[in-house]
Design a protein around this nucleic acid. Structure first.
Lengths: 220, 220
DNA sequence: GTATAATGACTGTCCAGTCAGTCATTTCAT
DNA sequence: ATGAAATGACTGACTGGACAGTCATTATAC
């Protein structure tokens, strides 16, 4: 198995560390940042650890003091990049005072500002690209991000149905349908924006318009 | 630049070829099929040409009689795999006797049977994965497949609006919204179906239900 | 007999991972 | 205080294996 992400801190408590934990964390972060740049530019297989090292301002050997292998570096980089925001939204979205529609809109606002508009977008793209080579990482991502995100979406949809705001349950059954356009936006931005730019914000707005009309309209 | 896909057929017309053109094509096809298997399994960078060769039943040197480089092999494989079906649908879909809804449903049926349910699904996935390493190929794919597909979709939507069948123009403006769930289906199948299976057909059916209700319903 | 197709051993390059050595910092003896 | 010893973070030249692409040789078709 791939094992731990970072070699465990020194075992002895007797001697003060020559480098503080803070310095150690900062250097690890610099390495992970550099790794993201290089992996994004070249993909996993073509990324060279010499490049990661020089971009992080360390020698190649130093990488191995923080991470046991190239694969572990990749995994550490992804994990450190995706963990945060899902938890935040699990806290803020399920406010019972606002309508399901507003919850959905808040979720999309969050997607736009916290993922599509940031570095995380690239991490997700990189993860999608390499996922079949890292089944274990795909599993982590599915469990920690996808499944939780879909759970939030489903609970919003269920609440919308329960309070009569939505007249049908397609989104309860397939919450993927609600975020599908965000995925298209993510991939389009990375692959085709240069060739054929689209206005992502307007597209997502149009999607919400359609979705709301479909959910609230008369089921013919 | 990357240059031609396949080493140009023999230039000389003076000598009869020792292998007929048919044999040559068949062997090329065997090589491309083998290449698809191997590239799918390993990704571009980790695919070994020895594996492609042995799977195609030839020696490695033989590959270079058909293709000038690994990259050219990848490109040839992708191009030979994606060309066909778009043209077919451009012919059959725009029948003025059927409703825009039926045209859309026919398009989705086509997507399910001709792409999602076949080897082409994997080619598309592979292409998405490697696209940033092959900008030229991404451009070809955008021009030959994406742009044409979206054009068909847009023309269906325009016709729906023109004949009063659809009451709003979001799909005219962003035809990507209509096929977004198909992309999710494609990626989900490849990455997560094993962990968390979903019924793709039912999901796409639910999408069409929602989409039709949104397009036909009262714009509140 | 000869031209072409096919072969596979070989070569040169690239790079992940290693490890003997360096050096800045801390600890300790006086 | 002060210098010597200990520590361990850091370095980068090196190694071993992998693999794309080559080409002298062999097989095959006509």
């Amino acid at each position: 198995m791939v094992g731990q992400i970072v070699s465990a801190g020194r075992g002895s408590k007797r001697k003060a560390p020559a480098r503080s934990e803070g310095e150690r964390q900062a250097k690890l972060q610099a390495i992970l940042d550099a790794a993201l740049d290089v992996f994004l530019e070249k993909g996993f297989a073509d990324a060279r650890l010499d490049d990661v090292a020089s971009r992080a301002g360390v020698a190649k050997g130093t990488l191995y003091l923080y991470v046991p292998s190239k694969q572990a570096l990749f995994e550490a980089m992804v994990r450190s990049g995706i963990g945060g925001p899902v938890g935040a939204i699990e806290q803020t979205i399920p406010d019972p005072h606002v309508s399901a529609e507003d919850q959905l809109r808040a979720l999309f606002h969050f997607l736009r500002t916290e993922i599509l508009g940031t570095r995380r977008r690239d991490i997700v793209r990189l993860l999608l690209m390499e996922a079949s080579r890292f089944p274990e990482l795909a599993e982590v991502y599915h469990r920690e991000v996808i499944a939780r995100g879909l759970r939030i979406l489903r609970s919003i949809a269920e609440r919308g149905v329960a309070r009569g705001e939505f007249r049908s349950d397609e989104i309860v059954r397939f919450p993927q349908l609600a975020i599908a356009p965000a995925l298209v936006a993510l991939l389009w931005t990375s692959l085709f924006q240069r060739l054929d730019p689209i206005d992502i914000e307007a597209m997502l707005e149009a999607h919400l318009t359609l979705l709301m009309r479909a959910l609230k309209g008369h089921p013919s």
